[in-house]
Amino acid sequence: MIDEKELVIALKSQNECERAFQILVNLYKERLYWHIRKIVLNHEDTDDILQNTFIKIYKNIHKFEEKSKLYTWMYRIATNESITFLNKKAKKKNITIEEVKNQLIENLESDIYFEGNQIQILFQKAINTLPQKQQLVFNMKYFEDHTYENLSEILETSVGGLKSSYHIAVKKITAYIKLNETI
């Protein structure tokens, strides 16, 4: 088990930063990858955002004031990078962020890195009906199994607010799937 405080000290030191960064990448690459992938859906964009996230972490580690956990801070950067990416794509195409996500979902069928079936595509469509923040809450709770306390730090929302948000999200998604799977 690597102590987070020691890792931060090493990341901020001139001699050890490269080795510490390598440890950091190995520790979090998969978790952050799947977190980003659930937001932007395709592998190529995820890979690009993930690399940018780690580079941003490396360059800005001296600005990290340790008011939150390193893990929380990294998730926040990855989330912001992903949402900024979607916003930029939407602005470029002059459409809404929901429409961008719908296009990405439509592309899933021909995506070589997607092996899901129609139910999984319907599942993605159902998630996309939720407001952006509720999507984050749902994905992070349902797939990544974060505790509400962790989520509260990452998303800067109260535990009570998150619980009700998740509850509403599950209800909306199941209702959408039930309504659309028979059609």
Binding site: K38, G116, I119, Q120, F123, F143, Y166, V170, T174
Partner: peptide, 16 residues
């Protein structure tokens, strides 16, 4: 919530 979650897929079908 637990009952509703049972209906949902357990994975999203993404691979690398």
């Amino acid at each position: 919530n637990k009952i509703n979650e049972e209906v949902l897929p357990k994975n999203i079908g993404f691979k690398t």
